[in-house]
Amino acid sequence: MPNPDLVPDRDGITFFGTLSAAVTHDMKNFLAIINENAGLLEDLAAGARNGAVPVDPRKAALISEKIRKQVNRADKMIKLFNRFSHSMDHAQESVDMEEMVLLVAGLAERIIRHHDVFLTVTPALVPCRIQAHRFDLLNLIYRAVETSCEILNNTPGENRKQVTISFGSDPLVPEICFILDTGTASGWDTLFDTSKDRALLDRVNMHVKKAGPGGNGFCLCKTPGKQ
């Protein structure tokens, strides 16, 4: 159950609404595909009843497989959404940052795709944990993904729009890095510069630093000296 002392602020509610809308859109699509395949089976059965064409067992098996695939997609999405919903249950705790990145990537897959952006997550080589409120950390990671998509879409050129997320190699200095295939380092000065973003960074005890070979990326890093 959500902890009533940890009710999200307006920004947090907006984040929750954005991801909920994306998830329900996905669910509607899964249901629509299941609905059409069930309808196709009905059509085939009706044709067979009328003596037109017997139902091909291979065709029926194929349709059944398509329905099962959508049920699996829906089940996966519901599990992710359930974990997201429970992210408000506890105050500060030790949180696996890789797990949180994968959760955001799964929930926001449709949003990222609609930006025409490809997101790759490089597995962490060492444990990457931080003391934080899960919901706030998820919100920050989503803001980083959203910011990455905005930068890529505002960058002229024909480059493939790619974001690669990786993790720091020192477990004592946990960080999440976002490297963008922009080929330019312009427009980074105002990164996470709004009062909302600064407040969010402060709540999860993190700060932003530039990263990448050409300064074409940024990392969310644990702020030293803070729990």
Binding site: N29, A32, I33, E36, N37, G39, L40, D43, G47, K66, K69, Q70
Partner: peptide, 15 residues
Amino acid sequence: DEQEFVLTLAERLQM
């Protein structure tokens, strides 16, 4: 953009 959806619906309309 949901290819499975559009192809199945197209098949039902063709029927």
